[in-house]
Design a binder for these strands. Structure first.
Lengths: 342, 342
DNA sequence: ATGAAAGCGCTAACAG
DNA sequence: CTGTTAGCGCTTTCAT
């Protein structure tokens, strides 16, 4: 049997003090050596590093965090305001989350994910911030929590939100110009021959409201009728709701602006089921440009959100705020991606 | 002006000691009151709770964690072994992640997400575990890290892995019986009239290897040829690779078993582009039963994984391991979901 | 039922 | 360059 457990885990070297004893130095020196501070003798440092490696030692981040008053963790909160149904699920948010994980990892931060149901929990944001577990917070989606976020932003700098930008708002937001995107969608539908438009989706979430508003801008200007066909986001309800709308409005609407690609895809399936040809009888435009957009039949014309730029922007702004800077919001331009559905 | 800031954030009450002073009791009592311990006078407790609420006070979790030697955080690691490309992206994993967040939140745990690129980082798992930031670890996907996970499992109980179960393995795993799923897929393709099969996807990841092995079981038993058409998972490469395969094998293969629904959907788009009718000329079966499966044209026959049961299983087993129990692995039955593509 | 005191593991002055 | 010391904020004996 070897006398020391080189596996590390389960061995006896758990604290910096243990390691100090082994190295014949003081805990302070070990701390400095492991932190890469300059004021340590090269030989001593090597010895300590070797020992640390041999025993698989890692300094306890809780202790370090407590002492330094910073954790190296960024909290990511996803508020589920409207549509209280369990599940984060939304493909766009999940993709954004993945990219955030990439970006944050790059910058040396860990990501703590928290789903919150604001209805059950008045002060979800304060609780998260006050927990002492995170150095800063990224909120994905304003949901119906705009006011609460505004309040918190007044007293807490290191927070950035993915969502819609409103004139004069106080919290720092990164997001696509939804209203402009909505205008582009409506214009495209009309250019493709539509004479009676519908917005398919929930208009309560602020991002969607802006998309709708953009479409309305264009519809009113050009004198084209525009109605709202409300849906939820949950996949199961979605198809039924769309089917019902189609049954009620068949033959009237010939241009559909779906709030998201997911909704658009579901809608195209229902259109096919009813024997309505896309884009000949009904034109349809989505929003997001998720992978699914290129796989529908016919491929979906959509308003692209630059999700990579979004993730980078969120992290970049957050880091600057962590450094004390008062950053402006970042509004990304949407892009019309013409495929075959309109 | 009010004399005390009822907003909480930014106020002067940051520690349990501050609150104790305000309440005229000792820090110990405040701690007990807030923790809901029984041995506190009801009146005192109420007073303390009121004060805490008024000042928006939350005990610092780092300090509490350090003292109690537990953090209330579960680490979720997603190793990106093969396919080193950035991005987690994979829809199945992301959905699982969302469900895990739900389950863990339910149980009072937070979720710390970490993407790891094992190639750049030999001891990613030890580092995560040793960081002291997490009470336990869930690993999503074995990737090519089976051996490393086995090693770690020997000395660390609170870890559960989503992936494939292999005879005699030592780490606790939750996952679908991929081999059985592969058999079901191949059987279905053949029952639908296929006479020459192909497995579409990478066979390196252990889950996919098992799916392929299942298909091979059936193919060999029935004397049907089966070839491998390798692909990556990244959406962009995917379509090109499939196109190339189809160009090379057009007219030979009439039954495709795609490693995932995502791959199947991309494949169907390419088949359509080449004018091959599904299921008349080519049958295709996917794996996962993601939402997209019901929206392809025609709708995709697939092998369903019970992802909800998977998430529940992972969390349930992990909690039992946190309590010291040596749990068995959980193998979930796949389910053939017949739609129109085979 | 409450207070006093020790200490979780680490880091950052402050000495030397 | 290194050791000593104090203390981050909380919980938990041990007294009372």
């Amino acid at each position: 049997m070897g006398e020391s457990d080189t596996k590390g885990r389960g061995a006896g070297v758990r604290t910096i003090t243990d390691l100090a004893r082994l190295a014949g130095v003081s805990p302070g020196t070990v701390s400095r050596a492991l932190a890469g501070k300059s004021l340590v003798n090269a030989r001593t440092r090597e010895k300590i590093e070797a020992l640390a490696r041999e025993h698989g030692f890692r300094p306890n981040q809780m202790a370090s965090g407590l002492r330094r008053q910073k954790t190296g963790v960024i909290g990511v909160a996803i508020p589920l305001g409207h549509d209280v149904r369990q599940q984060i699920s939304d493909t766009f948010f999940m993709t954004l989350l993945g990219l955030l994980a990439d970006e944050l990892t790059d910058k040396g931060y860990d990501l703590m994910l928290r789903r919150v149901v604001p209805m059950n929990d008045e002060d979800w944001l304060d609780r998260y911030i006050g927990s002492g577990m995170v150095d800063g917070v990224i909120v994905i989606g304003q949901s119906d929590q705009f006011d609460r976020i505004e309040e918190v932003a007044d007293g807490y700098l290191p927070m950035v939100v993915w969502g819609n930008h409103t004139q004069g708002q106080r919290h720092c937001v990164v997001g696509t110009d939804n209203r402009l995107g909505g205008r582009m969608a409506a214009e495209r539908l009309i250019a493709a021959g539509a004479t009676s438009l519908a917005f398919l989706g929930d208009t309560a979430p602020i991002e969607f409201a802006a998309r709708y508003a953009g479409a309305r801008d264009v519809a009113m200007r050009l004198g084209v009728p525009l109605r709202v066909l409300p849906t939820h986001l949950a996949p199961d309800q979605l198809s039924e709701e769309i089917a019902a709308h189609l049954a009620g409005n068949a033959g009237e609407v010939d241009g559909i602006f779906a709030a998201t690609d997911t909704i658009a895809a579901a809608c195209m399936a229902q259109l096919r089921a009813r024997g309505l040809a896309v884009p000949e009888q009904v034109r349809i435009v989505g929003f997001d440009d998720l992978p699914i957009a290129s796989q529908t039949v016919p491929p979906l014309t959509t308003i692209r959100q630059d999700i990579h730029a979004g993730a980078r922007g969120l992290v970049d702004l957050l880091l600057r705020r962590l450094a004390g800077e008062e950053t402006e919001s970042l509004v990304l331009p949407p892009q019309l991606k013409i495929r075959a559905s309109a």
